[in-house]
Design a protein around this nucleic acid. Structure first.
Length: 281
DNA sequence: AGGCAGGTTCTTA
DNA sequence: TAAGAACCTGCC
């Protein structure tokens, strides 16, 4: 089916934004796995996207997954160019990023796995966790794909699998312990839903392998808490270099997390351009 | 070859 | 409470 989207929606930018690790480039678009669903999506022309699903499935699954009922143009529009020119430039350059509504449990494990690693390594580990412990499905073209494993199945993986095929390194213990807690019911993502942002942060940071950065990412990407502002090395650099007098989060409520994504992507794309130039010389 | 990568934890002062 | 080292692993 064809879906018309008038709002910011750039699949490539979303795929590179570091919020999702199961976007696979395919025939000019992306294959995406979300829960037990798989989608192929491609931009056809301005504001028009082809999705290989039924209208019903789009309404039930994908419309919400892509958060298409939120106006990111509107959120960008709240930035005051005069008082914050850097953020305004970042948002303009990175227009098209959205915050997906991904599975909370998958985000918990994914961001524990992400610590101290780069995107390709995270992708590899996440994919391996799926093939080692997820459920095998077939998409409508007959292609096999694996779901992200729930706590029960994940907690059954042994040390050798977590360390070998999944290449988790020292993080294997975190993944094992957290999935055991979730399987036993002592940790439940559902409980976080009704908590405030700061209460949920505390709860998440009580898990082994979860510090402030990982907890923030889990809340922003797994619970759609759009005001949570993850600070990683890239953002640290931006804040130090561009906001020496301090970055006013109060003024950017309740969308600090969305703006963080613009700042993050902008910082990285500028670093890449710089690296590219250096290489040419 | 040694440092570093989208961080956390453990150890020291 | 605040710096500093260690941690798996792959990549330049």
């Amino acid at each position: 089916m064809i879906v018309q989207v008038r709002d910011d929606f750039d699949l490539g930018k979303i795929a590179e934004s570091g919020q999702c690790f199961r976007f696979k480039p395919h025939e000019g678009g992306f294959r995406i796995v979300h829960r037990e669903h798989r989608l192929f999506i491609r931009k056809e022309e301005e504001e028009r996207f082809y999705l290989d699903c039924t209208e019903e499935e789009y309404e039930k699954i994908w419309r919400s997954y892509f958060d298409l009922d939120t106006s990111y143009a509107g959120i960008r529009g709240k930035i005051d160019k005069a008082s914050d020119p850097y953020l305004a430039a970042a948002a303009e350059a990175e227009r098209g990023i959205r915050i997906l509504r991904q599975d909370p449990w998958e985000m918990v494990i994914t961001f524990i796995v992400s610590q101290n690693r780069n995107i390709p390594m995270i992708r590899r580990s996440v994919e391996a966790l799926c093939t080692c412990a997820g459920e095998l499905h077939e998409d409508r073209t007959g292609q096999p794909f694996w779901t992200f494993p729930g706590p029960e199945r994940l907690s059954r993986l042994d040390r050798e699998t977590l360390l070998g095929p999944c290449a988790l390194g020292y993080r294997w213990k975190y993944v094992q312990e957290v999935s055991r807690r979730a399987a036993s019911g002592s940790f439940m993502t559902e409980c976080l839903e009704k908590m405030s942002d700061s209460e949920a942060m505390e709860e998440l940071m009580a898990l082994p392998g979860v510090g402030p950065k990982v907890a923030s990412c889990i809340l922003l990407f797994g619970f759609h808490r759009l005001d949570v502002f993850p600070v990683d090395v890239w953002i640290r650099r931006v804040l130090d270099e561009e906001y020496p007098q301090g970055y006013d989060r109060g003024r950017h409520m309740p969308y600090n997390g969305v703006y963080q994504q613009y700042l993050f992507a902008y910082s990285r794309s500028r670093a890449e351009r710089k690296a590219g130039l250096a290489k040419e010389l």
